[in-house]
């Protein structure tokens, strides 16, 4: 689905990532760790086409990212669910409208998919918050809502950037439970986090590979994880 072949990314004359290779297969689960500023977010952005590698070749669903137009990338993003640490909602829309946003931009009617939206919100435990505006939500609710929005188009890949960064341990476990359930459904999941406790917990539940970004390179993490 997503293949990165010896890619590098430089910005402003400095290398942020170098010689990174990874292939995301359906049903795979990867954790991405590393210190702050190591390049985890940059790596994820390369995976969903927000950034184009300055070297190497990134292939999304069999197509070379460097050869794709902005519209092509937009179409492919509908097959990749992205969850950001800051969630990024449209504050003037209700939570239900925010979750339905991918449907709206892809020309599908949220009315026709009301059942799906309702089910997804119930699955994320947000049914009672459908009409709330994003600023009214707690950190955990925002993260779950961001996950619901990422899933509304049934993507094959879920990329989550520090999804538990702003929530307590209990909520982190709840989010992890949702992500592992999605993985069992056959979706590829990549979670960037520096929460080692969460990674250890996840490894008890799913077959997860842990990757670490060190010195701009991607490495398989040691057995201590």
């Amino acid at each position: 689905m997503i293949d990165l072949d010896k890619i590098a990314y430089s910005y402003g004359g400095g290398d942020l990532l170098s010689d990174v290779s990874l292939s995301l297969a359906p049903g795979s689960f990867h954790f991405l760790t590393g210190p702050s500023g190591a390049g985890k977010t940059t790596f994820l952005k390369l995976c969903y086409g927000e950034l184009i590698p300055t070297e190497g070749r990134a292939t999304l669903y069999g197509r070379d990212l460097a050869q794709m137009s902005r519209d092509d990338i937009a179409m492919l993003r509908r097959r990749i669910g992205v969850v950001h640490q800051d969630c990024r909602f449209l504050d003037h829309l209700s939570l239900a409208e925010n979750i339905a946003l991918p449907l709206t931009v892809s020309g599908r009617s949220p009315h026709a998919e009301a059942q799906n939206i309702g089910d997804l919100m119930a699955w994320c435990g947000l049914s009672h918050r459908a009409d709330a505006r994003p600023p009214e939500l707690s950190g955990g609710e925002r993260q779950r809502a961001a996950l619901a929005r990422a899933l509304i188009l049934s993507p094959d890949v879920i990329l989550a950037d520090e999804p538990t960064g702003n929530v307590d341990w209990e909520m982190s476990q709840r989010l992890l439970a949702l992500l592992t359930e999605l993985n069992r459904m056959g979706k590829a999941v990549v979670v960037a986090t520096h929460d080692l406790a969460l990674i250890r917990l996840a490894k008890q539940r799913v077959q997860a590979r842990v990757l670490r970004i060190t010195d701009r390179r991607l490495q398989l993490a040691g057995a201590d994880l």
Binding site: R78, R88, V105
Partner: peptide, 16 residues
Amino acid sequence: AQVIAVLRLVGARDAF
């Protein structure tokens, strides 16, 4: 600009 970034994130094309 933030609204546009969110729209792009969820797959909106420039024309939309």
